[in-house]
Design a protein around this nucleic acid. Structure first.
Length: 213
DNA sequence: GCACCGATCGCCT
DNA sequence: GGCGATCGGTGCT
């Protein structure tokens, strides 16, 4: 993605609607500060927006509110982590203002820091004889990146702040136009009627690290 | 109380 | 391309 410079991601940008934030997050750097002090990081290359009560694919469809989805109801800039398929975690970044239950699902990262540790975390539950993981296998899916960054329910609702276990850094690409972004429908959504067909997924077209090749 | 199923992944065919 | 793993949340009885 070319030369980069880094600064804090502007906090007020989290208050945007999820579809705008989802596009804004492409190219930004997600940072995981481990309890050991080690730092893992990757550039966000694929996102999906979940728009709230009217969005029939969202966990907050029809205004649903429960302990599991409570963080989606809070202000933007916090994590919403959920557990699914009996074994996987997925990370969202809450969008909008308090009372607007929207979020952006982080679907893929291009790993940039701590790749050896990510490989170790990702290999833990795989067969020993399996082929070694390539860089593009580390974070190319919402559950994969949670494994690679040691993200689980303990991180639900944490703010994405500088001193937090999760942080976001504004990465300024050499030229933002270097990213050709593709818009598509969301993955794994059926039974959501017209909402299954809405273009609410975005990914960096040329990236080798997106979830679907 | 209970049955259903998921914002997925990895391995096998 | 297909399927099994694996379990908490959800909604209905």
């Amino acid at each position: 993605m070319g030369n980069t410079s880094t600064r804090r991601f502007p906090q007020e940008d989290f208050a945007q609607p999820a579809d705008r934030l989802a596009q804004r997050l492409l190219g930004q750097t997600l940072v995981r500060n481990l309890p050991t002090g080690e730092r893992l990081a990757g550039r966000i290359v694929e996102t999906e927006a979940y728009l709230g009560p009217e969005d029939q694919a969202a966990h907050t469809r029809n205004g649903h509110r429960s302990p599991r989805v409570e963080s989606m109801w809070g202000p933007g800039g916090h994590a919403y982590v959920y557990f699914t398929y009996g074994m996987h975690h997925c990370l969202n970044i809450v969008a909008g203002r308090a009372g607007e239950p929207q979020a952006v699902l982080i679907r893929a990262l291009e790993p940039t820091e701590g790749l050896d540790e990510m490989r170790r975390l990702r290999s833990a539950k795989r067969k020993p004889e399996a082929k070694p993981l390539r860089d593009r296998d580390l974070c190319s899916g919402p559950a994969k990146l949670c494994q690679a960054l040691a993200i689980d329910l303990a991180l639900d609702s944490v703010p994405l702040a500088g001193d937090s276990p999760l942080a976001l850094e504004h990465t300024q690409p050499k030229s933002y136009q270097d990213h050709d972004v593709t818009t598509a429908t969301r993955i794994g959504i059926d039974r959501a009627g017209e909402w299954a067909h809405k273009p609410l997924r975005w990914y960096v077209t040329a990236s080798a690290h997106v979830s679907v090749r």
